[in-house]
């Protein structure tokens, strides 16, 4: 294994540059180093102006997402050594399809607005969420647990060409988050979310490229969530078409109700 690796890092200074340029740094390549270790090494020892986000360095916080050799990756979970054979060159860029604020830092305001737009909280119609305790069986938890693993790292947005081509598209993580609440036995807001997401900029914007699922470091499977959401939307439409009187009733019959309610 080579001792060093050449890191090509996209640099952008909003005060000086019109567009990003690449700067090369030769860094050591111990086998236990991830891309984030190399960035920290550069910032500490070589160039203190290099700007990037990071926090937990263990795949929990979702801060250090960036493009590594053209693929959306968490810098803390991407080993340098796995790229060492590739001509000893690793290209690091900010996450694709997001506005760049500086160097490797992207602007997340649009993403956060999209997340909030799907009402990612427990919605209750029968009573106040604070009126008592809601019990859940392990099976009911298993129904949505996978979708609750999202760390908002936005890798799925950078993997999705629809996000790039249609900036209004709500996007994989936000739809998976909506599904996380739809599938929660305590939630009664599936219909409200459907009204927001059964839309060309919502679930119907997805063309099932499937790369969001490949990019996800937490195995959330946003592509799966969206396709299942499409099925629910289609069934909902069919039901309202066949039985117009049913319009306005819940779409996830199995999720709505008071199963497990104790108070």
């Amino acid at each position: 294994m080579p001792d060093t690796v050449l890191l090509e890092i996209a640099r952008y200074s909003p005060e000086q540059d019109m567009e990003p340029t690449f700067e090369s740094y030769r860094v050591p390549c111990p086998k236990e180093w991830v891309v984030l270790d190399a960035l920290n090494h550069i910032k500490d020892k070589v160039d203190g102006t290099l700007t990037y986000r990071w926090s937990c360095r263990m795949g929990i916080c979702g801060s250090c997402g960036m493009m590594v050799n053209g693929e959306p990756k968490l810098a803390c979970a991407t080993f340098l050594s796995s790229y060492a054979k590739n001509g000893n060159k690793v290209r690091v860029e900010p996450l694709r399809y997001f506005p760049v604020m500086r160097d490797l830092v992207t602007e997340l305001g649009g993403f956060l607005d999209k997340l909030a737009s799907v009402k990612p909280w427990l919605i209750r119609h029968d009573d106040s969420p604070t009126s008592g305790e809601f019990l859940q069986t392990p099976e009911q938890l298993e129904n949505f647990r996978q979708y609750s693993m999202c760390i908002n790292c936005t890798l799925c947005y950078s993997a999705c060409p629809v996000v790039g081509l249609d900036p209004e598209f709500v996007g994989p993580a936000a739809i998976a988050l909506a599904q996380r609440y739809n599938k929660d036995s305590r939630d009664q807001g599936a219909e409200e979310r459907m009204a927001i997401l059964a839309h060309p900029e919502g679930i119907w914007g997805c063309t099932f490229v499937g790369e969001c699922t490949q990019a996800c470091p937490k195995h959330v499977d946003p592509a799966g969530a969206i396709q299942q959401y499409k099925l629910s939307a289609a069934l909902d439409w069919l039901k309202s078409f066949i039985m117009p009187r049913r319009r306005g009733e819940g779409i996830h019959d199995d999720n709505i109700g008071n199963q497990g309610r104790t108070a």
Binding site: P20, P99, V100, F111, L112, D113, E168
Partner: peptide, 25 residues
């Protein structure tokens, strides 16, 4: 500049607001 999506252009020049780089697809 966030309400209109990830690529929306800043509607008006905002003082002290840094220029974001928006690559074209």
């Amino acid at each position: 500049a966030t309400k209109e999506g990830l690529h929306s252009s800043t509607p008006a020049y905002t003082e002290f607001h840094p220029r974001w780089y928006r690559p074209r697809v």
